[in-house]
Design a protein around this nucleic acid. Structure first.
Lengths: 237, 237
DNA sequence: CGCCAGGTTGATTTCGCTCAAGCAATGTGG
DNA sequence: CCACATTGCTTGAGCGAAATCAACCTGGCG
């Protein structure tokens, strides 16, 4: 599917612009982003880019949530992260000059703009504030740290799973007024299992335990957490 | 211990300079590095910076090997990496503007230069090639990926330990002509254990197994690997 | 000397993997 | 439309790797 040139508002009037790295740009430079970017929407569950693809540039997420999944050479999920509106994504592989190391999947319907690599590069060359801002972004990326916390062998699978749920809920916009969160995960059980470094069957048992304890209600791929705080307390040692 | 100003040769004539990020600098800029840096040596086992310290700048490793260790909030080792001569270190926390997330320990006697943050910043501002080069460095950092591979629950402890040994040996300069490697790890058993996500006692048993199998000889903190290739084969699924 | 931290070894328990079966939902071909 | 395969998920029984609990060395040091 080809990207289509944006017909909507300019970057300068985009709601997420003050939050993303482009905030460092001058009005002039921002116009160049506007006129060179490609905007489009994706359904929940569809992928923005796939592991192994060559990076085309940097993606700016205007609306929705995106999930990053990565498989190592033996098919285990080894890394991941959740990105929400007001962040850019795809930059790691772009800056590294390597193929995408992860697949980006829309958790919700999303709106996203692709800023072509050539444009990003020329902006980085002439605006050092943008470079410094991006250095900070890359250096601060919580993804690897989060992934590590979910796959520590000494922590019981139940707790690792709770940590995953907490991480997902943290990024969920569907938070209720009173500690209740509901969201969907467009993933099979097997994938969730490998994310916390466990087997499908084990995860299945954990899920029904959590369900029985009223900590998390699984309905297919719809997850409801009645009380996030209570779940959080369960994750403590 | 305070750093002492360098009295030795200039950066331009330093053997590692062509390999590190400063290779992007002009002669003029490189002179600024030379005249502002602080050089010193460290004994094996001493630390270059500690987790929690505020970053002072970027370290350029001229000679030796450095090991990065990190503890999460519950005292588990969660991340690490080995850095060898011809690399810079300490940049992640510096770019992130956060306290050091890891402790850097000399594996061997080292020579290292500290380039103060203010100098690095001004160079980044005026030389966009340096920025791009550093973006690549940060984006390519293998540390988080390596750490992840060592703590995957589905892999047996024995194999995780072998992977750690392979990683350490890969960076060891003491490689023999015929596949034999010897090196020292300035760490307690407990620390090694948490690095592969296992208990001290389990590691102890694994170590004596490896010893009995002639795959790795442990003598206190001195490790000898008679045949790296054979060890590598043992790490296969 | 006694003490303590670092390390090894032994006995027991348990969490989670393995193997295996069952079930619901969806697909496919006659 | 039904037979039946396939895929995703759950449940059960048994076993094994590694955690836990507990001694017991060893060497360094006040």
């Amino acid at each position: 599917m080809a990207y289509t040139r944006r017909t909507g508002p300019m970057c300068a009037s985009c709601s997420v612009c003050p939050k993303v790295e482009w905030a460092e740009l001058s009005a002039n430079e921002l116009t160049r982003v506007t006129s060179n970017k490609f905007a489009r929407g994706y359904e929940a569950g569809s992928s923005l880019f796939e592991q192994g693809d060559d990076p085309k540039g940097v993606y700016c997420l205007e609306e929705g949530h995106v999930f990053l999944r990565r498989f190592d050479r033996f098919g285990n999920e080894t890394s991941f992260g959740v990105t929400e509106a007001g962040s850019t994504l795809g930059w790691r592989s772009f800056f590294a000059g390597e193929a995408h190391a992860a697949t980006a999947i829309a958790l919700t319907p999303i709106k996203v703009c692709l800023i072509p690599g050539s444009v990003v590069l020329s902006l980085l060359r002439e605006n050092s504030d943008l470079s410094l801002r991006y250095l900070k972004t890359v250096a601060r990326d919580p993804g690897p740290r989060d992934a590590l916390a979910l796959r520590t062998p000494l922590i019981p699978v139940r707790v690792r799973m709770i940590n995953l749920l907490l991480l997902l809920s943290r990024h969920s916009a569907n938070a209720d007024d009173k500690g209740s969160v509901a969201f969907k995960v467009p993933m099979k059980r097997r994938q969730i299992a490998s994310m916390v470094g466990a087997r499908e069957e084990t995860l299945s048992r954990i899920i029904s335990d959590l369900h029985a304890d009223g900590l998390a209600i699984f309905n297919g791929r719809q997850i409801t957490i009645p009380d996030v705080r209570r779940l959080y307390e369960e994750s403590m040692p």
